[in-house]
Amino acid sequence: MKNSKSLLIFILAIGVFGIINTEMGVIGILPALADYFNVSVSKAGLMVSLFALAIAISGPTLPLIFSGINRKKVMLLVLAIFIVGNVISIFTNNFTVALLARVIPAFFHPVYVSIALSVAAASVSEREAPKAISKVFIGVSAGMVLGVPVVSFMANTVSLEIAMSFFAVVNIFTFIATLLFVPSMPVQERLSYGSQLKILTHGITWLSILAVLFLNAAIFGVYSYLAEYLDVVTDMSLNIISAMLLVYGLANIIGNIIAGKLLTEYPIRSVTIFPIVLSAVYMIFFFVGELTVPTAIIILVWGILGGIGANINQYWIMSSAPKAPDFANGLFLTSVNLGTTIGAAVAGIIIAQIGTEYILFVGVLSLVLGFICILLRNYRYKPKTNQLIESDHCR
């Protein structure tokens, strides 16, 4: 039984890796795509921005619509849609067709990821759920840190078509593994749409959404311009910058593993302390940003915290609405994507108006706002918070 659960979680992690890799992998080959389709790099960038917009739009809706259908069938459907989109992207010479082949599957991105997180949590005891979810999040981190360099390497050494084929291969592998090894998972207790939407009438849900939005803005608002920061402020070479980005991504994976243990043993304390610790890291970063070695150490620590933060965000929204897991995970995906968009936009304005080094204060301000939302939830919803704290002590 334990082996079957481990296999299930492994397949879910690979599936999430394939979905995230399809989203993020094109970042490293945007110039090549622009040349291939004979469009500007900014226009080719629509393959990234419209993908993210589709996720933000469908996050609260499609997981809700599919919440009553057999989980295995839904996962196979989403993987099939991604495979078709991947294959079309490989063979088409038309940019509009290629864009549609990416954006249409993107709407189903939250469906697969939300189900993967819900299934991972449901496959183990409630106490062990954060650890199971953290293993799925390793797929998220791997999709972000490995997808870009792997696809870029394939495009540079073989061909763009082979690089694009990598997306399809991973999703085809997951489809076959899901078909053969994942058991049928009919929904045991189908929740009405109304009962799930009702969580939006609860203040705890909105405080959780706001906290997650600010926490993710704090991380990705700064991370979006990390390469710029290391170039302008730290004066690193391109090769060292690439190495630092890899360090950050690998540290994310370590953070996922740590987060599983922290959220299993000390959930409320971990969430409450997190913005304080990350704020301190940003403030140190501001003062040592011109020094190469301290900056490298900060990026390692920051990367670990980034991995922990991803798990905290999912846990914080899920714990506010545990009876509607698919819908809650959809809200989580929308919240983090909006946080990333807002954080990156504000940081971009700061760079243009004041200077690159000051983007760290965008992170600090976002963390302060997120911390306030966390304290408000802990204070206004003491019974629920106390219940989670008691479970801390019981463990």
Rank of each mutant, 00 (worst) to 15 (best):
L117Y: 10
L46P: 00
K43C: 11
I83H: 00
L79N: 09
A120H: 02
I65Y: 01
T92P: 10
T96M: 14
A101D: 04
S67T: 00
L50F: 13
N93Y: 15
N70D: 15
A52Y: 13
T92A: 10
V119R: 03
V124L: 04
V41T: 14
A32N: 14
A32P: 01
I90K: 11
I115H: 04
N38T: 14
A34D: 07
I90E: 12
L33C: 06
V39M: 06
K72C: 00
K72D: 00
P105A: 05
S42R: 12
S114R: 02
P60N: 04
A101M: 09
E126Q: 14
A98S: 12
N38D: 10
A101L: 09
A106W: 07
F51V: 15
A56W: 02
N86F: 07
M75S: 02
S123I: 10
F66R: 00
L117V: 06
R71K: 07
S123V: 05
V84A: 13
T92Q: 13
S89W: 09
S58K: 03
L62F: 01
A56V: 08
Y36D: 05
V74M: 01
N70R: 12
P60E: 04
P63H: 03
S40I: 04
G59F: 07
Y36K: 10
A54T: 10
V111L: 02
V48P: 02
A54Y: 02
L117A: 09
S125C: 06
L100N: 09
L99M: 13
L100Q: 03
S125T: 15
P105I: 03
V41C: 11
S49Y: 08
N94K: 05
P105Y: 05
I55W: 07
V41K: 15
L33K: 08
M47N: 07
A122F: 09
L117D: 08
D35H: 14
S58M: 08
I57F: 10
T96P: 08
S42G: 11
L50T: 13
V97Q: 10
A56Y: 01
L46H: 08
A120S: 06
I57W: 08
L79V: 03
L99R: 11
L62S: 05
V111F: 04
A34S: 14
A116P: 01
I115L: 12
I69T: 12
V39S: 01
I57T: 11
F95R: 07
F108Y: 01
V48N: 03
V113A: 14
V119K: 05
L33V: 14
G68Q: 01
S89R: 11
P60Y: 02
Y112W: 00
A44K: 13
V119Y: 01
A116N: 09
P60K: 06
V124A: 06
L53D: 11
S118E: 05
K43M: 14
A106H: 03
S114H: 04
F107H: 01
A101T: 13
V39E: 02
L50C: 10
N70L: 07
A34C: 09
S40V: 11
L33W: 11
V103H: 07
G85I: 08
N38A: 12
V119I: 03
A98P: 10
S40T: 15
G59V: 00
V39T: 15
K72H: 00
R102P: 14
A56D: 04
L50P: 04
G45W: 12
L117W: 07
I55C: 06
